[in-house]
């Protein structure tokens, strides 16, 4: 079953021109991928087998990303990594679109300046990974448990605005999902409406 689904997903990845993003139902195996990071190194989901993985869709020019990079996102990265999770930020902005870094050095300069604290920054200009996951907004967050099952997808929290002051009254749903996963509980809120800027696909 898993095998056929993987095959189907590989097929889907081979057709990046798909017109609409399939909404991934939850509790399904997370789609595998193979994509370069800022250093040009090929990273795959398989290399993090057996670990909890957080995926974060990023576009540094998006006001919603800026809102959470006021400290909220970095804080979450630090605590997730400290608890043993892998944090992968994915930039699916197409070449020439907002958020796309021309060079790895540009990306690293931004990461340094913003105290980015994840595991790897993946560059996905053709949108393959984004479309495989159905990423719609920046940010759009996914949590994958140790068995490779997608257990959370949606917004980072439950107050869908672009105002920094709203963070303190919001419930961070990614933090809650990670807490559930780490405690061995089923994730209580497995989906929330992602909010933010549209992912700048080609």
């Amino acid at each position: 079953m898993t095998l056929t689904r993987r095959t189907a997903l590989a097929g889907a990845l081979a057709v990046p021109a798909a017109l609409s993003l399939p909404g991934l139902a939850l509790a399904k195996p997370a789609p595998g991928f193979s994509v370069k990071d800022v250093d040009g190194k090929v990273r795959t989901l398989d290399e993090f087998k057996g670990r909890v993985v957080v995926l974060e869709w990023i576009n540094e020019g998006c006001p919603y990303v800026k809102k959470h990079y006021s400290g909220n996102m970095q804080g979450l990265q630090v605590s997730a990594v400290r608890d043993g999770a892998v944090w992968l930020s994915v930039c699916s902005s197409a070449v020439g679109q907002q958020g796309h870094w021309k060079t790895g050095a540009d990306a690293k300069a931004w990461m340094a300046a913003n105290n980015w604290a994840g595991t790897a920054m993946l560059i996905d200009p053709d949108g393959k990974v984004g479309k495989a996951y159905g990423a719609k907004t920046t940010p759009h967050m996914y949590v994958i448990d140790k068995t490779g099952t997608l257990v959370y997808q949606g917004g980072i929290d439950d107050v869908p605005t672009n105002k920094v002051e709203d963070i303190k009254r919001a419930k961070n749903l990614v933090a809650a999902a990670l807490a559930d996963v780490n405690a061995g509980r089923p994730v209580k809120v497995a989906f929330s409406q992602p909010y933010g800027c549209a992912v700048k696909y080609a």
Binding site: C62, P63, Q98, C197, A198
Partner: peptide, 12 residues
């Protein structure tokens, strides 16, 4: 009044 205005990019 607050609003998000978008073209390719979005501006609050």
């Amino acid at each position: 009044a607050s609003f998000l205005v978008c073209e390719q990019i979005c501006i609050p």
